[in-house]
């Protein structure tokens, strides 16, 4: 079947099967490989994108279900001039990523969190990230980056 959706502001369409997941359509159909797949039990969150403004796991939604929707992926998160957005810049400033694989999902979840709760506490950030796994950072600097992106003070990253 044919599906059409607005992805990062641009109308896109393509042929999919019923069983084609949204993440498969984005990666394979549209070549937007920034959205990653890290598990098959809807736990890791590497595939988080926004559908009609809400964070969803693109591995747990069919492309057909996103027909007609507005989808935002990591490729659509930078500022219009190509510079890093506030959240992206905070991740770089505070070393909130290492291998980079979970990062797109982390950024998309962080954006959803700050939309709902612009000044979260550290505990709220940690709780909100329940559906995003990272194996590299120990979450320390991810939490710090999100706190910084919310405009709240954090001490310098580097110690020693």
């Amino acid at each position: 079947m044919k599906v059409s959706m607005k992805v990062n502001g641009t109308g896109m369409s393509g042929e999919v099967e019923g069983r084609t997941l949204l993440v498969e359509f984005l990666r394979g159909g549209l070549g937007l490989t920034g959205t990653h797949v890290g598990c098959d039990t809807s736990q890791c969150g590497a595939c988080v994108v926004h559908v009609n403004g809400e964070a969803v796991k693109a591995c747990t939604m069919f492309a057909a279900e996103a027909d007609g929707a507005e989808v935002t992926t990591i490729e659509g998160m930078a500022n219009a001039d190509g510079s890093l957005s506030t959240i992206q810049q905070a991740f770089q400033d505070h070393h909130g990523l290492q291998c980079g694989f979970c990062t797109p999902g982390m950024v998309m979840s962080a954006a959803a969190l700050l939309k709902e709760n612009p000044k979260p506490t550290e505990a709220q950030v940690r709780e909100y990230l329940e559906g995003n796994l990272c194996r590299c950072t120990g979450y320390h600097n991810i939490v710090k980056a999100i706190m910084a992106a919310s405009g709240q003070a954090v001490e310098m990253t580097a110690a020693g």
């Binding site: 809400e54 969803v56 796991k57 747990t60 939604m61 329940e130």
Partner: peptide
Amino acid sequence: IGDPAVRNR
């Protein structure tokens, strides 16, 4: 229940 993305669906 679940996590924020799961609760949205």
